[in-house]
Structure formats: C-alpha cells, structure tokens
Design a protein around this nucleic acid. Structure first.
Lengths: 188, 188
DNA sequence: AGTTAAACGGAGTACAATCCTCCGCTTATT
DNA sequence: AATAAGCGGAGGATTGTACTCCGTTTAACT
C-alpha cells in the first residue's frame, strides 16, 4: 500500500469520526472527503459503500482506545489514575462514535475487539473499586456514558482546541463526582 | 386561539426540541410534524418559515427553564439544592437546544429573556458559592455546559424514559464533582 | 342541534442535496 | 525514466426536502 494512500485513509477516518460526533448520524460523503482534504473519488476507492466505511470507523476508534487503555492500566500507580488516563485518551480518539453508528451497522461483527474493550473497562473499574477509590454505586456504564457525553462537541462553531479542553474538564469533573476522596482539598 | 391549535403548537415545539437534540441541527420539517402527530400543513400554518420556528423553539425552552429556575431558587433551603433542582428542570425542558440552534438564527433578539436567564444562573451559582458549597473553580459556565451535555440523547433508539433517567444521573454525578461536601458518606 | 369560521391533513410538484461513476492527470516507487 | 497505483472532481442519476393547496374536520358559540 502506497504511503499517500495510507495517509489519506487515516485522514478520511479521522474526518468521519469528527463529523459523526458533530452530526450525530450519517454525515454526507462529500463533507467527509472535504474535511479530510481529499477528493470524493478517493473516499469511494477506500470505502466502496457505507457499511465498509462505518465498519472501518468503528474498528479505528475501538482499536486505538483499547490499546491506549491497556497501557494506561499497566503504567498507572492507582486505579483512579488509570481510569482518568483511559477516559482522556478515549475522548481524544473519539470512541463516542461507537454508540452513534451502532444502530446503522448491518452486522456489528468484531466480537474479539468488543470483548477486549469490555474486559479492559471492567478491569480498570474493578481495580479502582478494590482500592476503595470509587463510590460504591459507580459502574462501568457510568464511565462509558460519561465518555460518550464528553466526546460530543457542545456547539458547532467552537474552535476544536476549545472543544477538547472543555471535554477534558468535563471528564475531570465527573471523575471527581464518582471518586471517593474524603476531605479532599478544594481544587480551585 | 382555538384549543386544538394551541395544543398542536405545543406539540410541534416539543417535537422540534426532541429532534434538534437528537440530530444536532435542523431536522426535516416532515419529521417534526410526524413526531408531533400532526400534518405537515399544520406545521406551516403555525410557523411559516424556518426562522419563526427556531425563534419559537428558543423562547419555548428559555421561558420554561427560567420560570422553573426562579421558583427553584426561591423555594430551596440551600444554594446547591437550588442548583440541583434547576439543572434537573432545565434538562426536562430541553434548554440544550439553545446552543444548537443559536448559530442558525438570523438575529437572536430576545435580550430580555437572555438577561433574565443569565442573571438567574449567576444568582444560583453565587449563592452556592457564598454558602461555601461549591468548589472554588466551579463556574456558571461549567453548569451550563453540563446541562447541555446532559440534554443530548446518548444514542437514538434508547427508550425516552431511559434517556431521561441517564441524563438525571449524569447531572447528579457532575454536581457531586462540583460540590464541596467534605467527608460525605458513599452514596451507594 | 345548527352554524360558521378556524383549523386540520396530506397528496403533489418544484427544488435541492446527495450518491456514485468514470477517466484524464499526478505521484510514489523501482 | 518507467509504470502502476492513486488522485481529483465534473456530471448524470437518485433520493430527500420544502412548501402549497384545497376538500374535510372540529371547536366555539347561539
């Protein structure tokens, strides 16, 4: 595979992730190609139909997030630290698209990746619980939903850098709400 | 104004709010009429063009949220309680649409309502701060963004009742993160 | 109950956005 | 320098959306 082809493929996937998060559904193909800075023909060469594009997008974000999360779990001193790092990385990679495209997929067939992602999240949450750092009622679902919410842009038009900063701040706030740090000093 | 006309107008506005939150932009007119359970002609009679519809939607959510918030502020024993009640009510009314339609409006001309909404939010946040119940770095913007995030449905297809429950849980988690309750017992 | 004017529904046409193919040009690789 | 893989984007086909119009229904009032 030629180098420019690989580069364009990545750009297309990243653009698709951004647009799906903004629009909340199937964005127009031309819009994806435009945002990626490539011609429409290039999009169709890489992804001949809707399903292959959505499938590739799903695997794209899933693989990158899981990889990031696994190393976060391995390298962190505490459970909540691993959780915090995982959430921030997952947002940067845009895992939030998974929820949005799931109902559009004909057959979501990546049992292996799915299992890996679920067991990763549970491993992190369980560890934090075992170390007594999380509220009892905090579940893996809470984490997942928080990530999904943080992924979506607040309003189209805000500079991407600002959006990212707000997303990260939001995750930190939620984690503070889910964590269990008695008598922590006021952060401000 | 005939009773059925008033009822249909309300239904149309509610449907528009739901759809805007789901789609994140301008939903198709037919979709709004369908969801409201009225004919497309009825929509055009009430709102002859895009702008009048968007304008009405904005005022609809703004007025209801501000009214709810003002009574919450008056009736609550503490600042955070007022804040909590306001946030939950605002979500139920769908204030989150404001951010989404703002860039679509030709001229957003409701200075009075806008001022009332801003001063309300600041009044609530200030009171909570004065009573020492909020993190120092918690701002009115944090509250606003949290409400906006909670308003958006996580995934199209989930039953509305579940969506609402998740939204409310999310707000509670965020508030726990923003509040300052030293040594609070684990809620679970 | 009868009257009436306001309100309703939805088929249908005009318009706009989107999809996707095709082929001449460009560029990475050897 | 050769060449095959990759690129861009104009353009025709298709789908979706906007908006009108008019026969039917219904709330309001006597």
């Amino acid at each position: 595979m030629r180098a420019d082809a690989r580069r364009n493929r990545e750009r297309l996937l990243d653009a698709a992730v951004e647009l799906i998060l903004e629009m909340g559904g199937e964005p127009a193909r031309d819009a994806i190609a435009n945002r990626a800075g490539v011609g429409i023909g290039t999009l169709y060469r890489h992804f001949p139909d809707q399903q292959s594009l959505l499938h590739a997008v799903a695997l794209h974000v899933l693989d990158r997030s899981v990889a990031a999360g696994e190393s976060a779990l391995a390298d962190s001193a505490t459970g909540v630290e691993a959780l915090r790092r995982y959430m921030h990385l997952a947002i940067d990679h845009g895992v939030g698209v998974l929820n949005l495209i799931y109902p559009l997929l004909d057959h979501a067939n990546w049992p292996e990746q799915r299992a890996r992602a679920e067991s990763l999240l549970h491993a992190i949450v369980d560890r934090a619980h075992r170390e007594g750092q999380l509220r009892r009622d905090a579940t893996a679902k809470d984490i997942g939903f928080t990530i999904i919410r943080a992924c979506r842009p607040l309003a189209v038009g805000l500079p991407p850098a600002d959006e990212r900063a707000l997303a990260h701040r939001h995750v930190d706030i939620c984690l503070d709400g889910l964590a269990l740090e008695a008598c922590r000093p006021p952060p401000g």
